[in-house]
Amino acid sequence: MQPMVLPSTVTDKTEPLIRIQHISKSYRNTHALRDISIEIPRGTIFGLIGPNGAGKTTLLRILAALLTPSSGQVWFGQQEVTSTPAIIQRKVGYMPDFFGVYPDLSSTEYLEFYAGIHGIPRQKRAGIVTDLLELVELTSKRDAMVETLSRGMKQRLCLARAMVHDPEILLLDEPASGLDPRARVELRELVRTLQGMGKTVLISSHILLELAEMCTDIAILQNGELVIAGDVEKVIHQLGGGRQIEIRLLDKERVEEALNHLKDVTDLHNLTTPEETLIQADFTGDDQALHQILATLITKGLPIVSFAPRSGGGRLEEVFLNITERNSQS
């Protein structure tokens, strides 16, 4: 099966930071990864999505130099790094899908230990640890024993640990799994902050929705193969998921009139009115087309209260399930 690779909006501007070329990994009889090629632009939040066993963790572990691929290469910029783990270790911060904490250390000691084994000079360690604890909002827990932290806090501490050597690239394996909604929102904000700091972040998840709302680019893996990769909106569009838009009007008398206008728009399908003043429709066009629809409605003088294109929701999951199911059958 030939994976669809869509051009990324960011790739157009800069050359990719990470190039994964024809990576395969097999253990005895099983193929964990088959001929994966992905380009990851600098400064993106790149989501790796796939059901359990799709090869996400294997790919991340290869990028962290913890596994050597059976074939293929990984390039960081102009440098081939598959055979030079030392470069990878310097540039990559890896956060596995488990915590990996020592019971009898405080948060500060925990981070200082990892700073130490990353070769950071002793006099710099305290400053780095203080900054990191502040970044992940654990300053108040600096002297608390690691085992007493909540799951969300441990997750943030592990993220701080992955950053002790100030890596360019962060690999986060299932960072949101098992977190409550609040911790999840905090994690999302944190990842955005990291992007703002110029980091390139790779996140894996088996929940598309979780990534769609924070990633700029995504790749979908299925049975060790790449299904599709590229800019998040385009991927969702390509998958046939499109977007759903919701238009709320001030009074129900004008709803009929609005529906008449919207019927003629080619990018809109499945027009429904779940509430008296609310119109929902599936939208498959681009932002330009969306803007046109709003402009038309406004010029017709329709009393629009809200016009909200919303990505996904449960529908996105449905699309994801469809595509992975389709591929597993084919």
Partner: peptide, 13 residues
């Protein structure tokens, strides 16, 4: 077993 070995491998140790 504590799953901290990978983290040691990822470092300069």
């Amino acid at each position: 077993e504590r799953q901290t070995f990978d983290l040691l491998l990822c470092s300069n140790l």
